[in-house]
Write a protein that binds this DNA or RNA. Structure first.
Lengths: 179, 179
DNA sequence: CAGTATCCTGTCCGATACTG
DNA sequence: CAGTATCGGACAGGATACTG
């Protein structure tokens, strides 16, 4: 064992990273969203070593983010298509893009997300679709779910304890809620 | 050189990954959002080797996601506080959490994002704050920005070309927009 | 408590050559 | 075109011991 399995940690972020935490994985998904499906399309775009690409593609297929589909009988040819689970990853990619744009492009943006109808540059924000409110740290926070284990509870309790320090402003967890 | 520098790639997602692409980095940020600030708080929560934690913390400080702040003269003690750039990462974390919850917790959620006022479990979605519309792949797509380089343009053009295949449904880029 | 110092192993990753 | 095979280097990451 070199790296610990994050699956043991009962945390949704850790489990997500278990599938897309590798350096190349997210970039491959990005290109899949750009419409790429074939081995050499990915390879040219990413300038990645072929053996590495094979490995990452295989892992993404096993994690069911991509589906390997034969599109030619002879010669046998395969393409890699985003599954629903893979397409569901889009919000993460966009949040990451927005963060990258805002923080690491002093020279100006290279890519923007654009409204197809109006042509205007979009400004992605995360909103709670239940209440319709933007998900600020003041109004929303993490809370133990039905399947929470001891480790998770401890971490959440920690945030609740620190709530007393008003000069720090993290996402303090919610231990007791006025429901 | 082991890994290529993603900074060379003029892509916002690649640049973002340059800072948070390491396995532990995002988990450290998660705990920072939970309110943790000290070395041993992170260490206990993550069960990470101390030398690795030192390395990752240093990298996050250098990337200006965390700030190392002295909170005691003698003995000299430091804590790690989220900078604004670090706090700005929250939407990514929440998108990742949501994706993890939806896809890898058949046994039920361990952590939910909750509306503090109503106590209801939130459903995070990405919305364009300019138009107020949910950012679906049909209505929004990536487009070359003012500082786009040749490599980026090529990738975007690729998506546009594939637009002709209606059976595939990626985020085809926007080459020409009816503004 | 907050790390530093060593040592070791696994593997990520790149480079290159080769195949049906 | 779509990979497989092989090689080697760098380093992430783990384990442990130690320090002020």
């Amino acid at each position: 064992m070199q790296r610990k399995s994050f699956d043991k940690m009962q945390c949704p972020i850790a489990r997500a990273l278990e599938r897309v935490g590798e350096w190349w994985s997210i970039l491959i998904l990005r290109d899949a969203f750009y419409g790429m499906t074939r081995f050499d399309e990915f390879q040219k775009s990413l300038d990645i070593a072929p053996n590495m690409l094979t490995k990452r593609l295989t892992a993404l297929v096993e994690a069911q983010l991509l589906e390997r589909r034969q599109y030619s009988e002879k010669p046998p040819r395969y393409e890699y298509i985003l599954t629903e689970r893979g397409r569901d990853f889009r919000p993460v990619l966009w949040a990451l893009l927005e963060w990258g744009n805002n923080n690491f492009f002093p020279e100006g943006h290279s890519v923007d997300l654009v409204n197809r109808k109006t042509g205007k540059v979009a400004k992605p924000v995360v909103v709670d679709s239940v209440s319709g409110k933007p998900m600020t740290a003041e109004d929303f926070g993490p809370k133990a779910g039905p399947a929470a284990t001891e480790g998770v509870r401890r971490r959440l309790a920690f945030g609740a304890a620190k709530r007393l320090h008003p000069e720090l402003k993290p996402d303090f967890s919610i231990d007791k809620v006025t429901s």
